[in-house]
Amino acid sequence: MDELALINAAQNDDLDAFNRLILAHQELAFNVACRILVNPDAAEDAVQESFISAYNSLSSFRGGSFKAWLLRVVTNKCYDELRRQKRRPETELNPIIDDSGDEIESPTWLEDDAPSPEEHSEQALLAEAIEECISRLPENFRIVAVMIDVQDFEYQEVAKAIGKPLGTVKSRLARARHKLRDCLAHFRELWDSEFRLEDEVSV
């Protein structure tokens, strides 16, 4: 059954048809949410809620790219989550006091659960560095950069997904790339030989 038939069936309250659409797009949706929210747990919740919202508002789909429509629902949910995180940050900023009443010198919120650099391969470290640079971008730039450069979306699809004109998408992407380039320059030692070689050739 093709995508259009599945959509029509789902619009007629066929949940199985909609679940088949979910299976086709869930990896993409999860990756987008994961890059935008920089938190896999939050991304998981956001994707699940997005699919529920999408099913309940499936009647508002008027044709066109279902992937772009679905990603719009996902990005909107991610925006909501980011706003919620800003309103109520979950990180405990107060110092931890132990039983004796003394402030713990190295509180848990300063601990880094990530493995040490030695435990990572170069590739993993580079991926971590890239994700770190992405997470430092402003939200609007981050979404565009993730969708176009990481997920390889078309400009028009992104414009539909975020509800902005094409010019805005181009401008945001250019500024996001500019910031990412500056950020990644700090991790030059982690670049693959491929990137380094290109760098050397270009110089």
């Binding site: 990896e27 990756n31 991926a127 890239i130 992405i134 450069d149 790339r177 990412l180 380039r181 990137f195």
Partner: peptide, 12 residues
């Protein structure tokens, strides 16, 4: 290069 590095990110 920046775009290539971003695209090299592994899919989750």
């Amino acid at each position: 290069r920046t775009r290539a590095m971003l695209r090299s990110l592994p899919k989750r």
